[in-house]
């Protein structure tokens, strides 16, 4: 069982929860940019939870499945079809053998996720099936998908094996994407960073009052923010320290950048903010040109929001599992 890549899309890569435990050796985590969308896509197809999925950006890939496949699409709302059949996201779809799944553009959001029952059967590298494009580590020697790639798909467990079908079949039930993929206009919660106090007074105000937009130079390493330049009271000479996804850095250009899943392991720019963990996927889903505003948060508030989201996600994962077992 495999999926052949007919068209790779704009930037499509295999990702899982990321490569943990090797940062001290210079190896970053990589991994999906929208964690809840990844977990839910796997749950919908009946995977254990941590299988690799395809993460695609702005335009999805076109794939041919050699045998019947159960798939789910989450994250950004992508135009998906098999022949003339349009497929919805946030639910399970059973595709007949030989199906060509065409993923087109996105109406909302920036990053979509495709999970397949059985998972993509690529070897784990340092404990993860995530593609680290900078370090050239992981599946496909650490590169994005190319036309002509053939991705093996793992063993399908008996209970959810697809029955023979001639046309795609879509489950009668699905998930409400809203809490996981929501109102793009809401401000993102930002903690003050260690060097926030070093910003000049105007920049301190601008950071929380003004509207920025996502630069087209954004990628899996960082979201770059255009619209306003920020300035320090005086230049800072810092030595390199370990970095994190969600850290807002201010390089000398004055253009703030928020590190993302493929953040480098170390860096030396002033850290003016830290995005609340629950809002990192929201930023990842903003498209180039989309507006971004920040509101100030506290560690207490962001911890509470993180705990609540985990509870909600856990409950939903259990419900999906029950539903699949009773089907």
């Amino acid at each position: 069982m495999n999926a052949s890549v007919l068209r790779p899309g704009l930037l499509t890569s295999l990702q899982d929860g990321g490569r943990q435990g090797y940062a001290a050796l210079g190896v970053g985590r990589a991994g999906v940019m929208d964690g809840p969308a990844w977990r839910l896509a796997n749950a919908l197809v009946g995977n254990a939870g941590d299988e690799a999925v395809l993460e695609f950006t702005l335009t999805g890939p076109t794939l041919r499945f050699s045998r019947p496949a159960i798939i789910a699409l989450t994250g950004a709302t992508v135009d998906a079809r098999v022949d003339q059949h349009a497929l919805p996201g946030w639910t399970r779809c059973v595709l007949p053998a030989g199906s060509v799944l065409q993923l087109g553009g996105m109406r909302h959001g920036c990053r979509g996720y495709l999970a397949v029952h059985g998972g993509f059967a690529v070897a784990a590298v340092l404990g993860s099936r995530s593609t680290d494009m900078h370090a050239r580590l992981g599946p496909l020697d650490g590169r994005m998908l190319r036309a002509g790639d053939v991705l093996a798909i793992g063993e399908q467990k008996a209970p959810s094996s697809p029955r023979t079908t001639d046309t795609p079949r879509v489950s009668r039930w699905g998930l409400d994407p809203r809490p996981w993929f929501d109102d793009m206009a809401r401000p993102l919660a930002l903690l003050r960073g260690h060097h926030y106090a070093q910003l000049d007074a105007a920049s301190q105000r601008t950071l929380f009052d003004a509207s920025f937009h996502v630069s087209k130079d954004s990628n899996r390493t960082a979201s770059r923010l255009d619209g306003h330049r920020l300035a320090l009271r005086q230049p800072l000479e810092l030595i390199s320290e370990a970095t994190l996804p969600g850290t807002m850095q201010l390089p000398p250009s004055g253009q703030p950048i928020v590190l993302q899943a493929e953040a480098p392991v170390t860096g030396g720019y002033p850290r003016i903010g830290q995005l609340a963990a629950v809002d990192l996927p929201r930023l990842a889903q903003r498209r180039p040109g989309d507006a971004v505003c920040f509101r100030e948060t506290t560690l207490d508030e962001s911890l509470q929001r993180l705990a609540r989201r985990q509870e909600r996600l856990q409950r939903l994962l259990c419900r999906i599992e029950e539903r699949l077992e009773s089907a």
Binding site: A23, A24, I239, S240, E241, A242, V265, T266, L306
Partner: peptide, 17 residues
């Protein structure tokens, strides 16, 4: 807990839950 040493600091990365 993951420890990431640098020149003058150690990053601790942990599961907050």
């Amino acid at each position: 807990i993951e420890c990431v040493p640098a020149y003058a600091s150690v990053l601790l990365r942990f599961d907050p839950l």
